[in-house]
Nucleic acid binder design. Structure first.
Lengths: 179, 179
DNA sequence: CGGACGTAGTTGAGCCCTCAACTATGACCC
DNA sequence: GGGTCATAGTTGAGGGCTCAACTACGTCCG
């Protein structure tokens, strides 16, 4: 307990310097305003929200335009629960369909319908133009490349941290079971 | 009508090249996983959510630890409605207080309480360590600087687009009124 | 076999956010 | 000075997301 208190003490914190603080705040504000504007672009004049669009885009690149729910959740960085709810809504609109996975009766495949493909094709130009207007064309090519490399590292770090947390939770469960 | 159809035609869309596509997807995945992990870090062991933390951080730097609701909304890139709801919840927990603005009876000041300040000070070390672990320390200093500059541009572009959209809505309103 | 554990996906309650409508006040201007 | 428009903030309904609990199936192994 004492150790935990120690590790939370302010003493050992390396605060951000001014440049880091500035960059971090720009990141916060930039991501927030960017996604807000992109969402808005989808709301006016596109029948697909941003996450629906990404879901269909992912499916469109898969063999048979089909992916297992779990694979889709992993690719899109969505929770299983959120994916279930999202697919519920899209299925009701006829954009995707659920099918059993042959050979694994736990699994569910998500298949893009023709209507789903049509909706994707219809929305794609506006979507890409918005991404250009708000991100790609705003940056120098070299900035965009650096942004990509940097965010790839960030994604890895976050993935690793979440995995660590889940392991720790598993250990805690074991400990509890052993009491 | 015909013109609108034309302007949406696929013909004139400049699609993303492979490098741009890669960078854009890294950005999507990176931001998604980063905020998920940071939220999680706040949920376990901190009494403040990420947006509550930022709200208090902003107040802590203002004179008298006080800001008008509208100024706070602008700084934090929150909608007025969202800020109202968030402040409702924080006020119920004693972290902030509402006061009338002297000299403008429309306005409401948001003031950080001592309890709010204490909560901020308590959460700050863990928050900063998480931001380092997930972002700052993952990148080269030069990458972090570029990220900051890039996101500043992106924020400006998004702000400009939203402002344009609001102007257009205003024009539409005028037109409707003139019919 | 059969029990324990892991994986796949769903469910529903609760929470937070968005959106549009609303109240109230200030600013402008003829 | 009284209409008109702009600004400030709130409200509540509706919708999406999170979280924990749950069902169902697969896998491993003694």
């Amino acid at each position: 307990m004492n150790q935990q208190t120690e590790s939370r003490a302010e003493v050992s914190v390396r605060w951000l310097d001014d440049g880091q603080q500035w960059a971090w705040r720009r990141f916060l504000e930039g991501t927030s305003r960017f996604y807000e504007a992109l969402d808005r672009a989808h709301d006016v004049g596109m029948p697909l929200t941003l996450s629906e669009y990404h879901l269909l885009a992912q499916l469109s690149e898969a063999p048979e335009r089909t992916l297992r729910m779990s694979a889709l959740a992993e690719f899109l960085a969505l929770s299983r629960s959120r994916l279930t709810h999202t697919v519920d809504r899209m299925e009701a609109r006829g954009l995707v369909e659920r099918r059993p996975v042959p050979g694994d009766r736990r699994g569910v495949n998500c298949v893009m319908t023709d209507a789903g493909f049509a909706a994707l094709v219809d929305a794609a130009p506006q979507h890409v133009m918005a991404v250009r207007r708000l991100l790609v064309d705003v940056l120098e090519p070299e900035e965009m490349a650096t942004l990509g490399r940097a965010m790839a590292k960030v994604a890895d770090a976050a993935r690793a941290e979440v995995a660590r947390a889940q392991d720790a939770a598993g250990q805690a469960g074991l400990r509890a079971a052993n009491v």
